[in-house]
Nucleic acid binder design. Sequence first.
DNA 1: GTCAGTCACATACCCCGAGTATGTTCCCGA
DNA 2: TCGGGAACATACTCGGGGTATGTGACTGAC
Lengths: 204, 204
Amino acid sequence: MVEVKSRRGEYTGATRRALLDAAARLFTERGFAQTSLDDVAADARVTKGAIYHHFASKTGLFEALFDELEHTESGAARAAFEACEDPGAGVVAALDQFLRACSEPVYGALVFREAPLALGWDTLQRYEAKYSYGLLTDMLGALRGTGRIPIWGGDALPRVVFGMLSAAGQLLARTPPEDVERVRAECRVPFTALLVGLSSTTDS
Amino acid sequence: MVEVKSRRGEYTGATRRALLDAAARLFTERGFAQTSLDDVAADARVTKGAIYHHFASKTGLFEALFDELEHTESGAARAAFEACEDPGAGVVAALDQFLRACSEPVYGALVFREAPLALGWDTLQRYEAKYSYGLLTDMLGALRGTGRIPIWGGDALPRVVFGMLSAAGQLLARTPPEDVERVRAECRVPFTALLVGLSSTTDS
DNA sequence: GTCAGTCACATACCCCGAGTATGTTCCCGA
DNA sequence: TCGGGAACATACTCGGGGTATGTGACTGAC
């Protein structure tokens, strides 16, 4: 998090940032697999050596980018959730915040389109556990605390809900700007319906 | 679909089948990216030349495998759906059939774990449109016909539902056999809840 | 003031694996 | 029996991720 304060000013931090920005652009436009490290280095006006000085591998470069995006976004969603007294309203607010973030081209494309391809499902799930997934279980737990949804056993419910969020995010990431508003409204339907359904479901 | 009836018997068809079987095994165990074509060829007792004689590329090999699996599975799910008079019961039956198929190691691993990585989202969506996605919209349409769920505009709802199915499938594919029964029951919860919620949702 | 040490890269290289080009064998029909 | 094509095998290219090594600039110690 805190950048190493090099004695030689922020020259080194600047190249690292340039690499992350270049990677964000190219990975978003061409995709992770279709972008070579030489492309990223050239776009940042350096060579491949600089990449491997700052990051462990091509995957490591993507991970740093991904971690950055998820950190800020999950923070915003959690803030939206905790700003509300009522957990039910908090969930809706967090969902709205999330759907807005997905409409932003870079976040949607990298997190929901490229991340599985770049990191693989195992690594991706570790990050999910760290960020969005943890927030999601917190929110579901708060809802359960109010008796609004039933007790559940394993983690099937949050996983499936997360699948819904991924699908919505991926859909929004592919939606042209002029339709975003309408699609975002459509995306809210299944989530509110699920909440309604869960609240009227008795334990079995 | 119909195999070319070579004059020299089914020797050529046999190698093609051996290649598909070897690919299914290795892709399931090690994953698509971690399996080289030489590995597949060696496992089938042939060389890489045989692969490129029968398939256009590594992706093409996976596609043939994927298409085969999806064809049989979507057929089974559709049969389960159409065997019921009531669309509501049909949806439940199709869901059960689907969740059972996901518990089978090869189908779950290849379709929900490897397919996005091997084919990419665009190609994958074309296959979804051909198979599971088409069935899904048919089922939702039948439910809509009975007035059990509201009218919806775009394709956000089926997409999100498909995301739920993918998450459930992926979860089941990673579940050890002794827990499959329990997890499968847990997976049914959000789907039935969604149906309940949709049926009690009025148009907005 | 100079010299060892290290940071921040650049350059040159290795190697694996997908894809290709070409060779070879067997069979069939003319 | 001979041309031809199907069904592979063999040998090769090449792009890109990863590595090993070189190099200049700065810094802190003595």
